[in-house]
Design a binder for these strands. Structure first.
Lengths: 327, 327
DNA sequence: TTGTAGGCGTTATCAT
DNA sequence: ATGATAACGCCTACAA
C-alpha cells in the first residue's frame, strides 16, 4: 500500500510537493505536477483518510440520525441528502436510533469522536436543552421534527397548513364525518396536524367528534386498528384522514376487510406521499412533503454551517395536495 | 475539546495510562483506573477517532454499496446489517451507486482511503475480474447478486428454486397462461428466475409463450407497461408473475385500470416480500426473501473476514412462499 | 503498575 | 517552486 512518502521518493520530490499536487495548490510547476501525477497513478496511491483527518480535522462526512431506516418515509429524504453530499465529496453516515435515547446519545458520540463534521437529526428523541447544548459544540440541523420556538436550525413543511388543506379537500367533497388517525407522540407535527383537523372542521361548522380522533402510531397496523375502531363508532365516518401514508394503507386494507369500498363508501387521505402512495390501487390521495428536497436542503444548510456561513434558523418547504383515487 | 494529554495531566498520570484505561487493559490499578475515569467524565473526554484510526488502522466502519437507497428492497436488508454492525460497535457507511460504474469506483475509493474496514456490495455493476482484484486487497462480501462460479464470498437465496415454487403455486391454482414480468439486465438472479419460469411450465406440460415473457426493469412503471402489453397479447394470461413486488404493484394497478380484478380475473405473484407487499389491498402473494437475515448474515460474515476468520464462500438463505390475497 | 518516546500519514509553516 | 520539519491524537513497545 503506497504512502505519500513512497510517491515522493519515486517522483524524486518531497512529500510536501506531493501533498500540494494532491490538494491542487497552484504553486507547483506543471512539469513536477505531471511527474507526480504519473507516479501516483503507477503506484495506485490513494491518500489515507486517517492521516488527513488527523491533520485537517475535517472528516468530509456527515452523520444522519433517523428513527428507523426501514421507514420508507426516509428513503427519498436520504436520497436528496446523498445527492447533495456526494456532490460536495461528502459521505453520509446513516444510523437508526430506534427512538432510544441511550442509543441516540451513543450515536452522537460519533460526532464527538470527530467521525463526522456535522449532524442531521430526524425526529430526535433528545430533549431540547440537550440539543441546544450540543449545538454549541457541533454543527447540527433538525429535519422535519423540531421543538416549537427552538433556536436550533430546522427545516420542515408547514404541517398545520398542509393538514388544513387535506381537510378542506375532504370537506369540499361533502364529507362531514371525518376521522383522523393521529399518532400518540409529542412531535410538533402531530400537534399541528391535530389542531388543523379540529380547526378545519370548526371553520366549516362541523362539530368535532372526539370518537373520531384516534391516536396510535405511524404503522400500518395502527391504521388497521384505528379504522376498525372508528368504523364501529356510534357515528362512523365517511372519510379517514391518516397521519401517514402507511397508516392510510392500513386503513384501506381494514375497510376492504369490512367490505367497504374506497372511495365509494369511505374516502381516505394520507400524508407524506412516499413512493407507495401512488403505487396503491387505487392510488392514494395525500399531502405531499417534498421529501427529496427536504433532504437536499438539510444537507445544503448543514454544509453551509460547516463552511462557516450564516444560515436561516428556519426553512419551510412547500407541501402539495395530491388528489388521486381514494377521495 | 479535551485530549488524552489533558486527561493525563488532570489525573496526574501519563497518556499511556489513560490509553490503557480507555482500552480496558488489565494492567491498571483499580485506584488509578477510577481516578482516570473520573477525570474523563469531568472533562467530557471522547477519544478522537482520527488519532486512533491512524494508529490502529481500524476504522470500525463498513462500507455498504447499494444501487439506490430509495429502493425499499434494501430497507430491511440494511436494518439487519445495522443491527449486527452496531452490536459490534461498527458503523455503516451506506452509499448509492445509481448503477454507475464510475460512481461505484469512486465509492470504492473510500475503502482504499481506509475509511472502512470492509465492504458489502449489493448488485455491483463492476465486472467480475475487477472485483476479484479488489478482493485481494480488501474485505469484500457480495449480497444477493453475484457472478456464477465466482470465487468471491456471497450470500443470497436460491433464486431458481424460489421462482420455481412461485410458478408451481400459480400452476396449482389452475393457471396455464402465466406471464413473467422480468428485468432486462445481466444479473444471475434474473437468469435463474427466467429459467425456473420456463422449466416449471415445461414440467407441467405447458408450452411457454414467448409473448408472455416481458423484460423491463424493477420499477412500478415497468410493471404497468408490461401488464398492458401482455393483456393485449393474442392470448392474454390469467396470472402474472412479477420479478419484484414493486413490479407486481404496477401490474395490479394496470389491471385495475383495465377493469380487471385481482385475483378474480388475473392472479398476481410478486418476489421479495418487501413491507409494501402485505400492505397492498388485497395483500400480495409473493416469494419472501429473508431480507433482514440477508443483511445480518452479510454483516456477520464480513466482520468474520475482517477478524481474520475463515468464512464460507457461499451462503444460501431460505426463501418462503407467502400465499396471500392476489392468487 | 506506570512512564517514555516513537511513529502511524498527512498537511502547513517556515525556510530556501 | 520546493524542501525540511513540526504537529495533529492516539497506541504500544520498551524501560523502569
Amino acid at each position: 500500500m503506497a504512502r505519500i512518502k513512497d510517491v515522493a521518493a519515486a517522483a524524486g520530490v518531497s512529500t510536501a510537493t506531493v501533498s500540494r499536487v494532491i490538494n491542487k495548490h497552484s504553486s507547483v510547476s506543471e512539469s513536477t505536477r505531471r511527474k507526480v501525477l504519473e507516479v501516483i497513478a503507477k503506484l495506485n496511491y490513494v491518500p489515507n483518510h486517517g492521516g488527513r483527518l488527523l491533520r485537517t480535522q475535517e472528516t468530509k462526512s456527515i452523520l444522519v440520525l433517523v428513527p428507523d431506516i426501514r421507514n420508507s418515509f426516509y428513503a427519498n429524504i436520504l436520497y436528496g441528502m446523498d445527492r447533495l453530499a456526494s456532490d460536495h465529496q461528502y459521505t453520509l453516515i446513516i444510523a437508526s436510533t430506534y427512538s432510544d435515547v441511550i442509543r441516540e446519545r451513543n450515536l452522537i458520540n460519533l460526532l464527538q469522536q470527530k467521525l463526522a463534521d456535522g449532524m442531521i437529526l430526524l425526529a430526535s428523541v433528545l430533549g431540547e436543552s440537550e440539543l441546544v447544548k450540543l449545538d454549541q459544540d457541533y454543527h447540527l440541523v433538525q429535519l422535519c421534527e423540531f421543538n416549537q420556538g427552538t433556536t436550533l436550525t430546522h427545516i420542515s413543511v408547514d404541517n398545520y397548513q398542509a393538514a388544513y388543506e387535506a381537510m378542506t379537500h375532504l370537506i369540499s367533497k361533502g364529507h362531514e364525518k371525518i376521522a383522523f388517525l393521529s399518532a400518540n407522540n409529542n412531535f410538533l407535527s402531530t400537534k399541528l396536524r391535530e389542531m388543523a383537523y379540529i380547526q378545519a372542521l370548526k371553520d366549516h361548522n362541523i362539530m368535532p367528534d372526539e370518537g373520531l380522533l384516534i391516536r396510535g402510531s405511524y404503522s400500518f397496523e395502527s391504521g388497521r386498528i384505528g379504522t376498525n375502531i372508528v368504523m364501529n363508532a356510534v357515528s362512523p365516518p365517511t372519510a379517514i384522514f391518516a397521519i401517514s401514508d402507511v397508516v392510510a394503507a392500513g386503513a384501506i386494507q381494514a375497510l376492504y376487510r369490512l367490505n367497504l369500498r374506497t372511495p365509494a363508501d369511505v374516502a381516505v387521505c394520507g400524508f407524506d406521499d412516499i413512493d407507495m402512495a401512488s403505487q396503491l390501487t387505487p392510488p392514494l390521495t395525500t399531502v405531499a412533503q417534498p421529501l427529496e428536497m427536504l433532504g437536499t436542503m438539510a444537507a445544503k444548510i448543514l454544509l453551509d454551517k460547516i463552511a462557516g456561513k450564516e444560515v436561516k434558523r428556519s426553512t419551510v418547504l412547500q407541501h402539495q395536495l395530491m388528489i388521486r383515487g381514494t377521495t
